[in-house]
Amino acid sequence: MTRTTDLVALNDWYVVAFTSEIPKGHSETTVLLGQSLVIYRGWDGEFQCALAHGDGHPPPLVRQKYGFLWVSLGRPDHDIVSVPEFSEHERRFIHRGRIGVPSSGQRVIENFFDLSHFSFVHTGTLGGYESAEVPKYSVEFREQERELWAVGCSFVQPKASAAAGAASTIYYDYRIPSPFISIIYKDSLVRPGRKDLIGLFIQPHDEESCTVHSFALVHDEQNVSTHILHFYHEIFAQDRSILLHQTPKKLPVSPRREIPTISDASSIAYRRWLDRSGLQFGLDRASA
């Protein structure tokens, strides 16, 4: 595996671990953007990260934020994504574990904000065969075009969350603040008017495999964490079985490669946005 030379990819921040996954005094090796890393956690709880094969590259930048360990291999021109809800303390934080996916991070992100697969992939929970229609939503750029948002999304869901007792129409906003991060803001079924958050932080190992680190910030005082966790794992493993079998594994950017429909407005915008960003890593730029 070789380290990517793509500066757009190198200059971003990535989650490489949930901090409590690595005990004090332990180290772990991992791969980010084709670069092997050694992560070490000292007895003081602080993390150090070194390149396994330096080859003259500068040492990685390391930060702890939101309970996760973040690394950049380059010179990021922006801070780690801001998620104020982490400090609001009105929701429960749930670490959903890491899930390996043998596909590009972009395929994972695109699947995450896709609405029209709910009825077929998450039948009985997030969708049903009899209510597959996707209502119109809009796509916006925010934060000086830095972030892509799909807003006003809605869907009829038989069991929208672990806390759901009956089918209901759920409203969503999707935020894509970087090519490898997406956060959903979803109607809470427990506290009307408030939003639950589910977020994916993707660690791309190489262009065709990644680890998904994810969290939830939910209003749910009733269910035990394990119950909520099983719900998420069911959903994510269903998505994973799609991601395993999509070809190509890299995300095609040309609209001719994969034929979209109306409900793919967010996917079309995501692919264009990635194209314009100059990112190469994990993208299939063949035209036809």
Binding site: S116, F120, A132, I259, T261, I262
Partner: peptide, 14 residues
């Protein structure tokens, strides 16, 4: 047939 859009005729490119 595209279940997400029951009233819409799919593109011939599909």
């Amino acid at each position: 047939r595209i279940p997400a859009h029951p009233g819409v005729a799919p593109s011939r490119a599909a």
